[in-house]
Computed example of a mutant assay.
Amino acid sequence: MRRILIATDAWHPQVNGVVRTMSIVVEELRKRGHEVRVVGPDQFHTVPCPTYPEIRLATRPSGKFAKIMREFRPDVLHIVTEGPIGWAAWRWARKRNVPFTTSYHTRFPEYVQARIKFGLNLSYRLLRHFHNAASATLVATASLREDLEARGFTRLSPWTRGVNLERFSPEPRCNWQERLDVPGPIFIYVGRVAVEKNIEAFLSLDLPGTKIVVGDGPQRKALEQKFPQAFFTGRLDEGELSAAYAGGDVFVFPSLTDTFGLVLLEALASGTPCAAYDVTGPRDILAGTNGRVGAVGPDLREACLKALKADRQECRKHAEGFTWEVCADLFENALHPFFDK
C-alpha cells in the first residue's frame, strides 16, 4: 500500500466536477488500503479568485507545502490543478527531481479567455510547461487527448469518469410542471452558473415548454434578469438533485469548454436524455449511441428537439457503463512512486 499525496487548488467547500471526481477517487483509494493526504486551499491563507470570489486561492503556499511533504513523506505525488498549490507541488518535485503525475481537468486557457480575454497560445504554452514535466498527465476523453497532443502535450494517459448509480436514479422523479405550474417539455441545466458554462446559449434557444437552471454561481443574477421566463432553483441538496435531473425531459449541456461533463452522466443515470454541442465530453460520452440517449451537434436547439425522442431506459443503461471503480483503477495504475527523495 502507498502513501499518496494529492495537491489541489479545487477542494471542499467548492462544488464542481473536479472536487466531486477527486473526493470519490480519494475515498476509493482509502478503501483499497492506501493512506491518502489531500493538500487543498483549506490548509493555507487564501484570497478570493479574481472574477470568481467563491473560489479561494492559496497565497505563498510553497513553504508550508514543503513542510507537509517532510512530515507526510509520501510515496507518490499527484497534482490535480495548475493553481498556486499545484505550482508549489510542481516546484517542490522539480527541485528534487522526483516523478509526479498531473491531471488535466479544465480547459483553463478557454476559461481565462472567456473572463479576461487572455491569449490562448500563451496559456497553452504555460500549461505545456507544467504538464509535460510529469511522468503522466491523466485526461478524461479520447477527443481531449487528441486535442492536447496536437498542442504539444506529451505522456497523456486515459482516465475516464464514473457516476454513483445509487445516488442518481430514474425514480423518484420531480414533477416540475406541477411544482412550478408550467408547461412541458422540461429542458433542464444543472451545474455552476458561470460565464464559461455558456448557459446563455441554452436560455436563448427558441424551445417549447420550460427552461430550468439548477445551481448557483456568479452569473446567476444577471441571467435571472435577462431571462425572466426561465426558472432558477439555486443549489439543491443531494436528496433533491437526482429527482431534479429525473424530472427533466431533456438535460441541456451548453458548455464548449468542459473536458468531460460529469453532469451528463448524472443526468443519464437519472434517465434523462442529453443535448449538447459536438465538443469534447458530450462527443465522447454519447459516442456510438445513435440518438438513443440524446443528441450532439453544432445546432443546440436541434439537438434539444432530437433528444426529446430518446429512450429513458437506454439512458440509464448507458450510464451503467461508467463506474468509479474503473476511474480509480486508472488513477492508481498511473501513479509513479519515488523513494526517500
Rank of each mutant, 00 (worst) to 15 (best):
A7K: 13
T8I: 04
T8M: 11
D9Q: 01
D9M: 11
A10S: 03
P13I: 08
P13C: 05
V15T: 04
G17F: 01
G17Q: 11
R20F: 13
T21E: 01
M22H: 07
M22R: 02
I24L: 15
V25S: 00
V25G: 04
V25H: 00
V26L: 03
V26E: 07
E27N: 10
E28W: 06
L29W: 03
K31M: 11
K31Q: 13
G33C: 10
G33E: 01
V39M: 06
V39Y: 07
P41I: 13
Q43K: 03
Q43G: 03
F44Q: 03
H45D: 06
H45C: 05
T46Y: 10
P48R: 03
P48S: 01
T51Y: 07
Y52M: 09
I55K: 11
R56W: 04
L57C: 15
A58Q: 09
A58T: 10
A58N: 08
T59L: 09
T59R: 11
R60Y: 09
R60E: 13
P61I: 00
P61R: 03
S62A: 08
S62G: 02
G63Y: 07
F65V: 05
F65A: 00
A66F: 02
K67V: 15
I68F: 10
R70W: 14
E71F: 03
F72Q: 11
P74C: 13
D75F: 14
D75N: 12
V76W: 11
L77N: 07
L77M: 12
H78W: 15
H78N: 15
I79L: 10
T81S: 02
G83V: 00
P84N: 09
I85A: 02
I85T: 02
G86H: 04
A89R: 12
W90T: 01
W92A: 02
W92G: 00
V98S: 08
P99N: 06
P99E: 01
T101S: 00
T101M: 01
T102L: 05
S103I: 14
Y104A: 03
H105T: 04
T106P: 01
R107Q: 07
P109I: 00
Y111G: 02
V112S: 02
V112C: 02
V112H: 02
Q113C: 10
Q113A: 13
A114S: 11
A114I: 01
R115M: 10
F118Q: 14
G119L: 14
L120N: 03
L120Y: 04
S123R: 14
R125V: 14
L126P: 06
H129A: 07
H129W: 13
F130W: 11
H131N: 07
